[in-house]
Simulated scan of single mutants.
Amino acid sequence: MSKVFIVTGASRGLGLAIAQSLVQASHKVFLVARTEKDLQALKTQHPSSVDFMTADLADLKVAPAVIQSALKAFHKIDGIVINHGVLAPITRIFEADAEEWRRAYDINVFSAVALVKEAIPELRKSKGRIVIVSSGAAFGAYAGWGSYGTSKAAVTHFCAHIAVEEPSITSVAISPGKLDTDMQKAIRDDGKSSMSPKVYESFVDEHKNGLLLDPKTPGNVIAKLVDGATSDLNGKYFRWNATELASFQEA
């Protein structure tokens, strides 16, 4: 039976891969991102299965409109993937601008709180699922990555709190690994001056040697999780290729 999912940050990279995987599984997907062109392209390919809204999710007032627009398009919500996020600013704390950190937290943390809060009534009805895209940076410190790492730690722990408060909704935080996306390009382009040389060079080398993941690989896992994550995973964090998720990694 066809389900309805919201996917944020869905215009490119991992979000687009997740959305495509869900559509291929005959589900309906409501996309949210700032860029209309790529969203419209997917809707044109799948007019009955895809709808979208362009929005800057850092504006916390748009969260109710996202949920209402998804309901208007498809009449229910079975799951939501919180995928949007920013790495910037890549700066050391001594050189940081606190307002840039505030902007990063608005995007990476507070927009997730706003969206989840608005989605909870519908997800209670469907006994639905929430997948939050986390990062290994939530558990390890890298010079220059303070705003990103701490915001991902916050949103990962937010997942655990949802699970405690909303046990009928299955919530999971997933690290998708190092992907061949624009975020990795930003690290290579902007990270050199603030990151430690060894860590920076490791990112450059992984790209040069073709070791970055195709977003479709973890994207397929995340799509399966928002569709069918089991209650034993509720509130927990996993890497996308964790042994606990073996059944979701099958082709």
Rank of each mutant, 00 (worst) to 15 (best):
F110A: 11
V109A: 09
A33L: 05
A143G: 10
H75P: 00
S247E: 15
K216G: 01
E122Y: 13
S202G: 11
V62P: 03
S231H: 08
P176N: 05
L60E: 13
I132H: 06
H75M: 04
F5N: 11
V81M: 02
P218L: 05
E36N: 02
A229T: 09
Q184C: 09
G136R: 09
P89N: 12
R102E: 14
F139A: 12
H157S: 11
G136D: 08
A63T: 06
S196H: 08
Q20D: 08
L22S: 01
V66L: 10
T35I: 07
L42V: 12
G146A: 14
Q40G: 06
F203Y: 15
K208Q: 13
P215W: 04
R12P: 02
A98R: 03
F238I: 08
F74C: 07
I93Y: 07
S247Y: 00
S247W: 01
A33Y: 00
D51K: 01
D227R: 10
S175E: 13
A163R: 11
S202K: 13
V109N: 04
A242V: 04
R188V: 15
K37P: 00
E244P: 08
S26N: 15
L60I: 13
I162H: 01
Y200Q: 04
K28Y: 04
E122Q: 14
H75E: 15
A137T: 14
V199Y: 02
Y142M: 14
A88P: 00
D214S: 08
M183K: 09
Y200T: 08
I90S: 03
S168V: 04
L245I: 03
I120F: 12
G15P: 07
S111Y: 01
H161F: 10
S135C: 02
E206H: 07
N241W: 01
S126C: 04
Y237E: 06
T170D: 04
Q249F: 02
A229V: 05
I90M: 14
A186Q: 14
H27K: 06
K28W: 01
A137Y: 06
K192I: 07
V32H: 03
I222E: 04
L225W: 01
A17I: 00
H161L: 13
S193H: 11
Y142I: 15
G140V: 15
A163F: 07
S2V: 12
V7D: 02
A242G: 11
G79H: 06
K72T: 11
A63I: 03
G149Y: 07
I107L: 15
H27R: 05
D227Q: 14
I90C: 09
P47K: 12
A33G: 05
R239K: 14
L225P: 03
I93L: 11
K61D: 15
G219S: 12
T8I: 10
I107P: 03
V204T: 11
S26R: 14
A119P: 02
T230S: 12
S48M: 12
K127V: 00
L212Y: 05
R188W: 00
H207A: 15
V113H: 11
Q249E: 07
L42E: 10
F74I: 09
K178V: 04
M195N: 05
K43G: 04
M183N: 07
K208N: 12
T217D: 13
E100N: 14
K178N: 13
A229C: 10
S2I: 01
D227M: 15
V155A: 02
L212N: 06
D78V: 07
A242P: 02
A114L: 08
L123E: 03
H27Q: 05
S2W: 00
S26C: 08
E122T: 06
L233P: 05
A153E: 06
D38V: 00
